[in-house]
Simulated scan of single mutants.
Amino acid sequence: MRRRTLILGAGATLAAGPLRAQGFAGLGETSETFAQPSPDTRLVFPGDHAPHPAFRIEWWYVTANLAAADGTPYGVQWTLFRSALAPDGPTDGWGNPQAWMGHAAVTSETRHLAAERLARGGIGQAGVTVDPFRAAIDDWALEGPSLTDVTMRAAGTDFSYDLRLAAQGPFVLQGDEGYSVKSASGQASHYYSQPFYRAEGTLRLPDGDVEVTGQAWLDREWSSQPLDEGQNGWDWFSLHLDGGEKLMGFRLRGTGPDFTAATWIAADGTPTPYPDGAFGAEPLETARVAGRDVPVVWRVTLPDHGLDVTVRALNPECWMPLAFPYWEGPFMVEGSHSGGGYLEMTGYE
């Protein structure tokens, strides 16, 4: 789903106000005062790269599967979340109702390093502009002449990275022309991706600098209630297959039956969306991570394309020990297809 109940919690923290949690951070709660996604809406670029402040939540989310010159694999995450504390308000000053949160991480086979930033809108600390494109929180930034050609940087106490991302294919609309359904009862978001970035740059790690190249995937999503009240966690997969195809798939878990959806993306960028039940994600092995059992090996299937693969975490210890913790990290793909990708999991207590 791409995904993120995290940001609503960040908004509540920054507002120092109470939040009645549902699921991971309340995104199954009805929100009648905010705008709601519509299947009649058609996304327009570059305009929809900008924030949508009438909606409650939004994110600019990048994951990258990288390798050093000797083949050593790495993963990188860069995320900017926006949460509206109210559906309108002043654009400048502390009365601005937008709260922002940034997450960054670097993963290797033996280390997972993560950092977090929190900010309030209206004071110049965080925000997004389109022409030229810039999404930033403090000195972390995703910026360039347009969202098809950007540099991406972030830093924690023990790592930093500086990467260039250049799109080699089109933006891809998820779901029905960008309208992505998340439950049997009809909760939804507006959702598109750029899964065709070619990435190159430098990771600065405790053992020294590493020059890397690879592939990156951007997800853009906004909504006001993307979960049903009975849903409390998800498993989200993005696959870069060696044949040039891509796959996005998710499983939403809760008190009722799991809800799944997927998009098969051809090498030329043509998307084929799949409804609930077509995509399969079955946990095969778990690891004890941060005091909880987390699936780190999966069987992922999409029979319409003959896909039946094992997804294995590069590093099982990819716990994000931040204000709103979750698991996110790179994986390797083997079976009917080969490649790599990224997995995010929430709701494992």
Score class of each variant (00 low, 15 high):
2 R>W: 13
4 R>A: 14
5 T>P: 15
5 T>H: 14
6 L>E: 09
7 I>P: 05
8 L>E: 12
10 A>N: 14
10 A>Y: 15
11 G>W: 08
15 A>Q: 09
21 A>P: 04
25 A>C: 00
28 G>V: 12
28 G>L: 10
33 T>M: 08
35 A>L: 12
38 S>F: 05
39 P>K: 08
39 P>F: 08
40 D>S: 14
40 D>T: 13
41 T>H: 13
43 L>I: 08
45 F>W: 14
47 G>H: 13
51 P>E: 08
61 Y>K: 07
62 V>G: 07
70 D>V: 10
73 P>T: 01
80 L>C: 11
81 F>C: 03
81 F>I: 00
83 S>K: 01
86 A>L: 08
90 P>L: 06
90 P>V: 08
91 T>P: 05
92 D>H: 15
92 D>L: 15
96 N>I: 10
103 H>V: 15
105 A>V: 00
106 V>T: 00
107 T>D: 01
109 E>M: 13
111 R>A: 14
114 A>R: 09
115 A>G: 04
117 R>C: 07
122 G>Q: 06
127 G>Y: 10
130 V>M: 05
133 F>M: 08
137 I>E: 03
137 I>G: 00
142 L>W: 03
142 L>E: 02
142 L>Y: 01
142 L>G: 02
147 L>I: 12
150 V>E: 08
150 V>R: 13
153 R>E: 04
155 A>N: 09
155 A>W: 09
159 F>D: 06
166 A>Q: 12
171 F>N: 07
174 Q>L: 14
174 Q>R: 12
176 D>Q: 15
179 Y>P: 04
179 Y>M: 07
181 V>C: 04
183 S>N: 04
183 S>H: 02
183 S>M: 07
187 Q>H: 13
193 S>Y: 06
195 P>N: 04
202 T>D: 00
202 T>F: 02
203 L>F: 01
203 L>C: 04
208 G>V: 09
210 V>T: 09
211 E>I: 12
212 V>K: 05
217 W>E: 00
228 D>I: 01
232 N>V: 08
234 W>I: 11
237 F>L: 14
239 L>D: 04
247 L>F: 04
247 L>M: 04
254 G>D: 05
255 T>N: 09
260 T>H: 02
262 A>N: 07
263 T>Y: 07
263 T>K: 07
264 W>H: 04
265 I>K: 00
274 Y>C: 06
274 Y>R: 10
275 P>F: 07
275 P>G: 15
276 D>R: 05
277 G>I: 03
280 G>D: 05
284 L>N: 01
284 L>H: 00
288 R>P: 06
292 R>T: 15
292 R>H: 14
295 P>L: 04
297 V>W: 03
297 V>S: 09
304 D>W: 03
308 D>W: 03
308 D>A: 02
314 L>A: 02
315 N>F: 13
318 C>M: 12
321 P>M: 03
324 F>T: 15
326 Y>W: 12
330 P>T: 14
335 G>I: 05
339 G>A: 05
340 G>M: 09
342 Y>G: 15
343 L>A: 08
343 L>F: 06
346 T>M: 11
347 G>M: 13
348 Y>T: 11
349 E>V: 10
